[in-house]
């Protein structure tokens, strides 16, 4: 049974021009939708963000970024696991182990101050990188979209600050007790 001409043409058009039908791109949009930083974005905005991201593959043991290096991009883990480490002469202090859907190095979206820790792939890892300069350009052209991301970033940093303050207070209390 043959499809009507209109549907055939529509399918042809989608094959050539509609990148969103690409399974890997669709997958990328779904992953971004799960990241708290992009929680406020609608599907169109998520597709817009997906277009400015970079896909990276890291082998087991490879460093994603180094402590002390200037930060230029935020990373979202697509598959695999990553250790956040304070390097030392021995093995180094592991602060956290992140898995798929988590993000790291988000402060690099604000400025190029040095990284406060290193990120090392525990196993073969696929990561999505969002570059600060691309976000800044997005802010220029689509201010509402860019400001949604920055607002989420500010909220996340605020929450982390509160958590750190609580942990510090608890640590001081336990020390004095």
């Amino acid at each position: 049974m043959t499809l009507p001409l209109q549907k055939q043409l529509s399918a042809l058009w989608d094959n050539i021009f509609d990148r969103s039908r690409d399974p890997s791109k669709q997958d990328l949009v779904n992953i971004l939708a799960q990241v708290p930083l992009f929680a406020d974005l609608n599907h169109r905005e998520l597709k817009r963000v997906a277009r400015i991201t970079h896909q990276r593959h890291y082998a087991q043991g490879e460093k994603i970024f180094h402590m002390g290096h200037p930060g230029a991009a935020m990373f979202i883990i697509r598959t695999g696991r990553v250790n956040i480490v304070i390097p030392s002469e021995s093995d180094g202090l592991v602060l956290a182990t992140l898995s798929a859907g988590a993000f790291m190095g988000e402060l690099a979206l604000l400025d190029d101050s040095p990284r406060s820790a290193s990120a090392i792939a525990v196993e073969d890892t696929q990561a999505i990188a969002l570059f600060r300069s691309d976000l800044n350009k997005l802010l220029e052209t689509e201010a509402s979209l860019g400001s949604k991301i920055l607002k989420s970033l500010a909220l996340i940093i605020g929450q982390r600050l509160k958590l750190t303050n609580q942990q510090l207070a608890q640590a001081q209390m336990s020390k004095s007790a």
Partner: peptide, 14 residues
């Protein structure tokens, strides 16, 4: 940028 090794990724972007 895809052709750039991971070690130089952020530097090349900058």
């Amino acid at each position: 940028v895809q052709l750039v090794p991971n070690h130089y990724f952020e530097m090349v972007l900058t």
